[in-house]
Design a protein around this nucleic acid. Structure first.
Length: 678
DNA sequence: AGCTGCATAAACATGT
DNA sequence: AACATGTTTATGCAGC
């Protein structure tokens, strides 16, 4: 009762369980299989051959560009008409004119999925007519499709690569690694064109100030599909930015009119009030000063090399350093354009870093894998990059960071595992309120396993999109508890974690809170511990693991292949299959795009393996091996009241390991942070 | 068809 | 009385 204050603001307000009936109506109506309806076309596309897929993707992009151009022409005409005649409109109406155009052009050129926030932003900035919205949405859907194709394509490639790798292993080749890299390179080159186009579009958006992308957010569009851009392309991109900006200037209309592509002229000093001007200007100022220091002291400059200005897209030639400096100060002064360019550069760098990190990891994993294979199977190959909560809590010394140490992947998920089936949700969060019904645990059987990696990877997505996370309440609760520094949470803190981490749980509070309480009480794995302050909930990891393993059935060939290649036992095939099954669904997050399938599979494997080992070995005292099929055990929840007597070495996973994990702490008092988050 | 896991709703108890 | 916290029961759905 002392720390309760936060709860009510969650929207629950005076509404308690009694009101649930009214609240629940909406959800209940929405129940019918919302999650199952995927676009037919998307499904079809999946079956395309890689080359076909790529072609289709290209075509789509080209079409988009074409449409875009047509659209622009139309707009110009309309504009002309408007200006010439029809005085029907009040001045006010005329003011709206620009805003009429923007969204349309955005719609026609947006190759990226717009996140809810971005959408919101657009909505705030511009007045969209329903029709425009519609166009936008349609575009988005088309784009989702397109992304799916690419993901699918990529996935296939990865699988192929892996298969080939396996075959080569049998053949006793040595240069597999190089081969794979070469193949990957080739593939990436294939992708580049598409990626470039996409990037271009994104930049266009940014340039217009229609898309505000904070560094942290970048990942969505930039990372999702644009991996492996080479320097030449970056330059190209830069030119693109520069040129387009200039066009805008010459059109005299700020970011509104994309018409009349004209040959680029380099120098331009005009500003565009970028939406985020203020944001950048600080960092730029600081940056600027340091740079000044830099090149004053050293007679060289990172932006100056071989007599050429290396400011992205500039390439102006200079005789001497002084004139370069002059140029730098004049042409690349602190204005909106430079600001925008700097921002883009930041994103580029970010992306490259990410890419590098991923490739390093991949290389590491490959080497590890190959080495392991050639000698003898080690039980724990280097994790690709994902931290398994179970791994840490069980097998690793507690110095490691807690289960969900927020991964350094600054990626913003494009669309996480589940939502692809509900892909439109990314576009229209609001539509979800009706279409995403109660979690009919479509995936939950499989997702019954610990969710750490997935939830982490898609964290931002779930934080912002009102998409129901495809995990059971039990899994989520466990996650929340394990994330906490003390591995224990009060009920209220659990609530807060839910609302903070999942936009979905910011509504219908009465319903899901009830469910949370219900789950806490029902499942043995949640142990209530009386505390000085009151009661906290902890996770009995053993109990949790007990419930996990479910079914192990037949096995596709691929599964076997990969499985053997990784040197895991048959016990893991279940996880594999689960993942394989899931992988029909997921749009891979940026974090895993490198080798999506393998990554997520590896996760599943690791989790599952640990689970399996638990049952095999450490189960020890209490129950029968494996999970006891005793139906009786369900409803018997041992009295948790005195953890002392509760001989469990297990019950409190807690005690030792705190780690400076940033994200959790605010939990205690931050009560209602979530409203600000949107 | 029956079992099982899960979500959801709701009644009820208890403490503040 | 209102509310938060827990517990328990009931029901329905879905997968096996």
């Amino acid at each position: 009762m002392m720390q309760e204050s936060g709860t009510e603001a969650t929207s629950n307000g005076p509404a308690s369980q009694n009101r649930a009936a009214s609240v629940e109506d909406g959800a209940r109506n929405a129940r019918p299989n919302s999650a199952t309806s995927v676009d037919v076309t998307a499904a079809d596309l999946i079956h395309l051959q890689p080359q076909q897929a790529l072609q289709v993707a290209r075509q789509i992009l080209l079409q988009q560009q074409h449409q875009q151009q047509q659209q622009q022409q139309q707009q110009q005409q309309q504009q002309l008409q408007l200006q010439q005649g029809t005085d029907l409109k009040s001045p006010k109406d005329n003011e709206n004119q620009p805003s009429l155009q923007v969204p349309v052009s955005v719609a026609m050129m947006t190759p990226q999925v717009i996140t809810p926030q971005q959408m919101q932003q657009i909505l705030q900035q511009q007045v969209l007519s329903p029709q425009q919205l519609q166009v936008l949405l349609q575009q988005q859907q088309a784009l989702m499709l397109q992304q799916q194709q690419l993901q699918e394509f990529y996935k296939k490639q990865q699988e192929q690569l892996h298969l080939q790798l396996l075959q080569q292993q049998h053949a006793g080749k040595q240069s597999k690694e190089q081969q794979q890299q070469a193949q990957q390179l080739a593939f990436q080159q294939q992708l580049m064109q598409v990626q470039q186009l996409q990037q271009q579009h994104l930049l266009n958006l940014q340039r217009q100030g229609l898309l505000t992308i904070q560094p942290g957010q970048t990942a969505l569009p930039l990372h999702s599909l644009t991996q492996g851009i080479n320097p030449a392309e970056l330059q190209q991109l830069w030119k693109e930015v520069t040129n387009l900006k200039e066009e805008n200037n010459s059109n005299g209309r700020r970011g509104l009119d994309l018409s009349s592509p004209q040959p680029p002229k380099k120098p331009l000093l005009n500003q565009h009030a970028s939406t985020n001007g203020q944001y950048m200007s600080h960092s730029l100022k600081r940056e600027g000063s340091t740079l000044d220091d830099y090149h004053h002291s050293h007679h060289s400059h990172p932006l100056y090399g071989h007599g050429v200005c290396k400011w992205p897209g500039c390439e102006a030639v200079f005789e001497d350093f002084q004139s370069f400096l002059k140029h730098l100060n004049n042409e690349h002064a602190l204005d909106d354009r430079s600001t925008a360019q700097c921002r883009v550069q930041m994103q580029v760098v970010q992306q490259l870093e990410l890419q590098l990190a991923k490739d390093k990891e991949r290389l590491q994993a490959m080497m590890t894998h190959l080495h392991v294979k050639s000698t003898e199977p080690k039980p724990t190959p280097q994790p690709l990059n994902l931290v398994s909560s179970v791994t840490l809590s069980k097998t690793a010394p507690p110095e490691a960071s807690p289960p969900l140490s927020l991964p350094q992947t600054p990626t913003t998920p494009t669309a996480p595992l589940t939502p692809l089936s509900q892909a439109h949700s990314v576009i229209t969060p609001n539509s979800l309120h009706h279409s995403v019904g109660p979690m009919r645990r479509r995936y939950s059987d499989k997702y019954n396993m610990p969710i750490s990696p997935d939830i982490v990877q898609n964290k931002e997505f779930y934080m912002n999109a009102e998409v129901r996370p495809p995990f059971t309440y039990a899994s989520l609760i466990r996650q929340g508890i394990l994330e906490s520094p003390e591995k224990q949470l009060t009920l209220n803190e659990i609530y807060n974690w839910f609302t903070r981490m999942f936009a979905y749980f910011r509504r219908n509070a009465a319903t899901w809170k009830n469910a949370v309480r219900h789950n806490l009480s029902l499942h043995k794995c949640f142990v209530r511990v009386e505390n000085v302050k009151g009661a906290v909930w902890t996770v009995d990891e053993l109990e949790f693991q007990k419930r996990r393993p479910q079914k192990i059935t037949g096995s596709p060939a691929l599964v076997k292949n990969i499985q053997t290649s990784l040197g895991y036992g048959p016990a893991l095939s279940a996880a594999f299959q689960a993942s394989m099954a899931e992988n029909n669904i997921p749009l891979y997050t940026t974090a895993s795009i490198g080798s999506p399938t393998l990554n997520s599979l590896a996760n599943a494997i690791r989790e599952e393996m640990i689970g399996a080992m638990d049952h095999g070995n450490s189960n020890g005292s209490d129950s029968s091996p494996g999970r006891s099929p005793l139906p009786a055990m369900h409803h018997i929840k041992e009295e948790p009241l005195d953890p002392e007597d509760h001989e469990g070495p297990l019950s409190l996973v807690t005690t030792a390991n705190h780690s400076p994990d940033f994200d959790h702490h605010r939990d205690y008092d931050d009560d209602q942070g979530h409203d600000d988050m949107l």
